[in-house]
Amino acid sequence: MVKTLAKRMGLLLLTLLLVTVLAFLAFSIIPGDPTSSILGVDATPEQVAVLREQLGLDLPIWQRYWNWLSQAFAGDLGTSYNFRMPVGQLMAPKMSATLLLAALSFVLIVVISIPLGILSARHAGGWLDRVVTVADQVTMSIPNFVVGIALTYLFGLVLRWFEPGSYTSATRDLAEQLRYLIFPALAVALPRSAMTVKMLRGSILSEMGQDYIRTAYSKGNSQSSVLWRHVLRNAMIPVVTFLAMAIADIVAGSIVVEQVFAVPGLGQLLISSIGNRDYPVVQAIVVLVAAVVVVCNFAADLLYRVMDPRLKGR
């Protein structure tokens, strides 16, 4: 068990390293020099040379990568070309908004989809199940940002439950932040919840058809105790893995939905940095998301092993 985990961990770290190499390479081979976007087109060659040295652009690429990587490990992700401040400092306040949004979205997905999936499977074939299935299929087909716009319209403009655009990083009060973020979180969560409901429903129904369920009934279990004691434990295994893997998509969804609700998070920073060709920032965000992906996959793997005794010790 420990050996397998160590191996998986090593593999994941290797993946992460690979991502940083690829990201670094990608941003190094871009045509056009960041100096021109910083200094403008009419900079003197001397100015450009000085800046290139300042930014370390005169060094060979492997050395630049090494510098970047060792600094990154020390917590220094470089300096933003555009804002002239350390990337870490720039990202920190934005990161909290995005991570809060992603976390809230995740909680919503769990809270929405698990009861609905169970309910739908329990009444499979009935009218409730049909309503859920149709609603599910439709919800799955709505892009995050469209859900966001619809929520803004309904709850922000018509019902006035929140004021669109009123979220700032200066909003210190957590309760207040959450009250605003619940709407973008819903936008991120709804399509993904629909997928989860569908998956859980399918998983429960396929477990219900297994032989061991018949055994459980033969011992005198009631329908609900068969569901809670036998079916769910087995049916949740693939769903938990799916959810853990979905975290990366939730983060990506948050980045898009932030734009809809004007949440000053990583999404806004990423979009503006892409526009400004502010590569150290883009690179740092990419690496951060990569880290989230890697950690989540690792967690998914771990959970899978904990939940399924058949995989223990393998």
Binding site: Q210, D211, Y212, R214, T215, A216, H230, R233, N234, I237, M307, D308, P309, R310
Partner: peptide, 10 residues
């Protein structure tokens, strides 16, 4: 079916 009649996670 003894192979499948027991709950795999219990």
């Amino acid at each position: 079916e003894p192979m499948t009649s027991l709950n795999p996670t219990m």
